[in-house]
């Protein structure tokens, strides 16, 4: 079977999730590969969630938030622009291609941008191929294997 990337999207409630909703309401076609988790703010996205997504088999993670200056909570996304680059260093450290972790700003009005990013990310991950981590193997067959 052809490789279908599994991508986890963490979307902020006010801009990006609404933008994704708009994409749907506007019947904009986009790849079905991004599985969305809504958080109130992109600032809520704990780096551990992203690592956990990779551990559980995600081939990519995309975090979307309000444009800088537009945060519903004033400055939540400013924490995100520091967390994600920092986390990207760890992700790289774990030997994962940093292109598998993306941070983008999507406003409530940018349904088309949401669809575009989803398609772009899906294609990029498709070209990178599945993310293979030894931890996948260990988690599936945990204790007393050796």
């Amino acid at each position: 079977m052809a490789f279908e990337p599994k991508i986890i999207g963490f979307l902020c409630n006010w801009c990006s999730y609404t933008g994704a909703d708009l994409a749907g309401v506007s019947r904009i076609k986009s790849a079905p590969n991004v599985r969305i988790i809504r958080t109130m703010c992109s600032g809520r996205v704990d780096p551990a969630f992203i690592l956990k997504a990779f551990q559980l088999g995600a081939d990519g993670v995309i975090v979307m938030g309000c444009h800088l200056g537009d945060c519903h909570y004033q400055e939540g996304n400013y924490k995100t622009i520091r967390r994600l680059p920092f986390l990207r260093r760890l992700v790289k450290g774990f030997g994962i291609d940093p292109r598998r972790l993306r941070l983008e700003w999507v406003s409530a009005s940018e349904g088309d941008k949401f669809a575009l990013l989803v398609n772009e990310m899906t294609e990029e991950i498709r070209s990178l191929g599945p993310l293979k981590l030894s931890v996948h193997h260990e988690i599936q067959q945990p204790v007393a294997h050796h």
Binding site: D46, A48, R83, P85, L87
Partner: peptide, 22 residues
């Protein structure tokens, strides 16, 4: 309650970095 010490520390430290320019 913390599953990943490194990720948690990264999250905490990046929260208190005083910069907004990438």
């Amino acid at each position: 309650n913390v599953t990943d010490q490194g990720a948690k520390m990264v999250s905490a430290l990046s929260s208190i970095i005083d910069a907004q320019d990438p």
